[in-house]
Amino acid sequence: MSDRVQMLVALQDLELMIREAEDPTSKETEEALGFTMQGIEKLQMDCEQLRKKIPKPDLRLYDRIRRRYHRVVVPVVSRICTGCFQGLPTSRTRTIPTSRPLPTCESCGRILYWL
């Protein structure tokens, strides 16, 4: 996985999974259904390693948006940012950022992920 946005999506999904595994209510719900949730240390290690692989400026941006919003990276569906539900200008298209800044929503500032 080399795409910078994809790495942040993976990080966001992993942090959600860790929060849920630590959350007593969702843990109880899963355990009541018969699932076990015991390998949380492994996930925390995965998370640390993933953070090391992400370029520093991207990680800084991610953590900065994280302080404002629950969800940092949001899918673009039918040219709409699913974070704030504002339409994107027609000039905005899917870009694969290499050295450029990450694509963000002009209205809410979240990082955009084209599905």
Binding site: V9, M37, K42
Partner: peptide, 27 residues
């Protein structure tokens, strides 16, 4: 990747031949 990580928390094989891998994803 997300589903594999969920499995590392604990197998979703519930017994009696049933497995229910699951998770939430930005994708």
């Amino acid at each position: 990747e997300m589903i594999r990580r969920r499995e590392s928390l604990g197998s979703t094989g519930l017994g009696d031949g049933i497995a229910v891998p699951h998770g939430r994803s930005t994708a």
